[in-house]
Design a protein around this nucleic acid. Structure first.
Length: 765
DNA sequence: GTAGGGTTAG
């Protein structure tokens, strides 16, 4: 019978075999015996079986001896539950079982700093400190948690070091960023003393400090390479954002007859994920290779593969991998699936998974919050962020804040933005450059270009995005000259402007009426993009130089796109040039027949020329083409809350109050000598009476005025594709004078700052 | 039984 059981135990390949052996042992009442318990636990460790199964086996031992404890502690130290290992060790001490030296390296490795130091004192007392494995583990503990000089002290005191000791101290110095000392010790070693791990440690060290050239030099000079060495170099390229180089080295690896392992595939697949848009054929090639080798993928590989399928747009394939993972899914798998749906814009499915997942972490919240933020659901993003803070199961980090800042910026909600900034300190969040960049974006989109500038100035280092964000902000606020100055400062700092910078600068010039400066900048662009031409058409058009604009269009080396004709149509509208407007509109109706904005502009051109029949014709075409007119809306922030208003909609809670207030203002305005008509206001001056009043815009703005005068000062946000029309401008100017206050209105991406009856943006006028 | 490599969020 015994030999039968021993035979079974030799043939264990998977968890199923293990369970069968366990059943046999229970059948023969042998499962209490330490010998068999230890054997089963060793199999658990080898197979990475479920932790409750291992503890079940352990508990069946009646009087566990030191070997059984070693097995279970080893098991826990290799699975995710390392704190269990330490608590079992305490359990062992409680039962007066004397640990032997071989247990300490395992314990120290998984203990964390405080326990590690405690174990150090244990081994000193027990006299185990001269054991090679023990002292190596202690050194490794100090190398990992610091202070690294204690590791060095142990190292210096050794008179019979082996290669593992050298390797630990070198990797310790790399961990603490001490490249110099790591390299010094490497060179202290003799050529024959170094092994493949020593070399790999150097490759990893240089790769992690982004010194890929030196990393590659060590890699090329290695006497021999293991699969780990290849993986170290591959991940070096991958982590530095060089996916092409990763794939190139991977091909080199295969061609020189090396067998990739799970880690290799994870690295390569995740590099493919970032190439999914740029080079789909290369990605297909790698996927075919993976199919050909047909090997056992672990969860890491499957999760990476899930992410890749999602990023190349194959959500079904991604979902299949997710479902096939069954109960083996961890939070990373869930997060990958959630962000896949969120990226694709399928927010309800993403949210459903988010609600269902068993354990959420910071990445789960971030995936969902950024999903909302990037799909225009700014309010939902902020709502979920508030839930995250009160849930307390995970803390927000910089990535969370980037999404939240962006959401606040899109809303133009300054109070909310200031509140999110205050959560930074409460949660001890440090920002990196990209965090500060999103803060610049938020402040500038919330109308506070001053705060945006302060953040920019306070930054220790700035990158291209920092400059571009502030330049675009200045452009939107009409500060053209400051934008140009910032561009020269940028060049002084050694950062070359890119196409985004030039779009920002040209927009700034266009909005500030800086024609000459804008033209100079345009001429300095080496290879102008079609969008740069669009900015120039806009600039010339606003300045009334429509003939020059037409000339520029004809001289373009590329095919004009909708932005070009859009700018032309806009200019024709401002300067009431019917024939040019018709030309531009005809082009636009072909390219984007369902954009309602173009029809509205053309109809406005006809209206300003008194050609009412043509106005009707435009609206008829719109109806025939079934063009949906964008509903006019606006929102304002009041005490951290967002109030959205849709034209004609009287349902919001406060709408009765608002309309009452509106009526009051009308009275106030009439007394001050203004004409109030259909909820809009204008001065009763002859030349302005000719202006056609576009009711929709005026009404919703009027609602905002009501809020403004009811003691709320913040940015008014006007819906996308809508423009503030002339009468609105007049109204706001007048109210700013009447109320003696500053009013900021955001119209798509432009800001209009009104104070004392003047507007600082000379757009349209 | 010591040392080296890996998945998800902006």
């Amino acid at each position: 019978m015994m030999s039968h059981l021993i035979n079974i135990s030799r043939k264990i390949r998977n968890v199923h075999d293990l369970r069968q052996l366990h059943a046999q042992l229970v059948h023969h009442s042998l499962h209490h015996h330490n010998h068999w318990v230890a054997l089963l636990l060793n199999h658990c460790t080898r197979l990475v079986a479920a932790s409750n199964y291992a503890s079940h086996i352990f508990e069946s031992a009646t009087y566990p001896n030191v070997y059984v404890f070693i097995c279970i502690i080893k098991y826990y130290s290799q699975s995710q539950t390392q704190s269990e290992a330490v608590s079992l060790f305490k359990h062992m001490q409680y039962n007066d079982i004397k640990p032997d030296a071989s247990l300490y390296p395992i314990l120290i490795k998984c203990a964390g700093k405080a326990c590690g130091v405690l174990f150090h004192s244990h081994v000193l007392k027990l006299g185990y400190v001269h054991d090679h494995y023990v002292r190596n583990a202690i050194m490794g503990m100090y190398a990992k948690y610091g202070p690294v000089h204690l590791a060095r002290k142990l190292f210096d005191e050794m008179h019979d070091r082996n290669v593992a000791d050298w390797n630990v101290i070198i990797s310790g110095y790399w961990k603490w960023g001490n490249e110099e000392e790591a390299s010094r010790i490497f060179h202290m070693m003799g050529e024959s003393q170094r092994n493949v791990i020593t070399w790999t440690t150097m490759v990893t060290g240089y790769a992690k400090s982004r010194n890929l050239k030196t990393a590659r030099m060590y890699f090329d000079n290695m006497p021999q390479r293991s699969v780990v060495s290849w993986n170290a170099m591959l991940s070096g390229y991958a982590q530095s954002g060089e996916p092409q180089a990763t794939i190139r080295l991977f091909n080199h690896m295969l061609n020189s007859g090396n067998e990739p392992d799970q880690t290799t595939w994870v690295t390569v697949i995740s590099s493919c994920s970032s190439l999914a848009d740029d080079d789909p054929s290369l990605v297909d090639l790698v996927l075919r290779k993976l199919e050909k080798v047909n090997f056992q993928s672990n969860y890491f590989v499957k999760t990476a593969l899930l992410d890749l399928q999602a990023k190349r747009g194959n959500l079904e394939a991604a979902r299949m991998i997710f479902d096939q993972l069954g109960v083996g899914k961890n939070s990373v798998t869930w997060n990958a699936m959630i962000s896949a749906y969120a990226r694709a814009g399928d927010l309800s499915v993403a949210r459903d998974l988010f609600n269902k997942m068993p354990e959420r972490n910071t990445v789960s919240w971030n995936s969902m919050i950024s999903g909302y933020a990037q799909n225009g659901e700014s309010l939902m993003a902020i709502k979920l962020f508030k839930e995250m803070i009160s849930s307390k199961d995970s803390k927000p980090n910089e990535v969370t804040m980037v999404s939240v800042f962006s959401a606040c910026g899109h809303l133009g909600a300054l109070d909310l933005g200031n509140w999110t900034v205050s959560t930074l300190n409460e949660n001890n969040i440090k920002l990196s450059i990209s965090g500060y960049n999103s803060l610049i974006f938020m402040y500038s989109r919330c109308g506070s270009i001053e705060d945006a500038t302060i953040i920019f100035q306070e930054m220790e280092t700035r990158d291209l995005v920092s400059y571009n964000t502030l330049i675009s902000g200045l452009a939107a606020h009409g500060h053209g000259m400051e934008g140009i100055k910032l561009m020269s400062k940028m060049k002084e700092d050694g950062i070359e402007p890119d196409r985004i910078t030039y779009i920002g600068i040209l927009t700034a010039c266009s909005h500030a009426g800086l024609l000459e400066e804008g033209q100079k900048v345009f001429q300095s662009i080496k290879v102008p993009d079609v969008d740069h031409y669009a900015c120039m058409i806009d600039m010339l058009g606003r300045a009334g130089k429509l003939e020059e604009a037409m000339k520029l269009i004809r001289s373009m080396p590329m095919e004009p796109h909708e932005g070009i004709y859009g700018s032309l149509l806009n200019a024709a509208c401002i300067h009431k040039r019917v024939e040019l407007g018709e030309l531009a509109a005809a082009k636009l109706f072909k390219v984007e027949p369902h954009n309602s904005g173009n029809y509205v502009l053309l109809s406005n051109i006809y209206a300003s020329a008194g050609r009412w029949k043509d106005v009707d014709k435009v609206w008829d075409t719109m109806r025939k083409q079934e063009v949906q007119k964008t509903t006019a809306w606006s929102w304002v922030e009041h005490k951290g809350e967002i109030h959205k208003f849709i034209v004609g909609d009287r349902s919001p809670k406060r709408s009765d109050d608002i309309y009452k207030l509106l009526a009051n203002i009308k009275v106030k305005l009439r007394r001050a000598g203004y004409v109030v008509d259909k909820s809009c206001v204008r001065r009763d001056v002859e030349e302005e009476e000719k202006e056609e009043i576009v009711g929709v815009h005026s009404e919703k703005l009027a609602i905002c005025f009501a809020l403004l005068v009811s003691d709320i000062g913040s940015v008014i946000r006007v819906g996308k594709n809508l423009r503030i029309c002339l009468d609105c401008h007049t109204s706001i100017k007048m109210i700013s004078k009447l109320e003696g206050r500053q009013i900021i209105v955001r119209d798509n991406n432009r800001f209009h700052c009104f104070s004392d009856g003047l507007c600082s943006c000379n757009d349209y006028w």
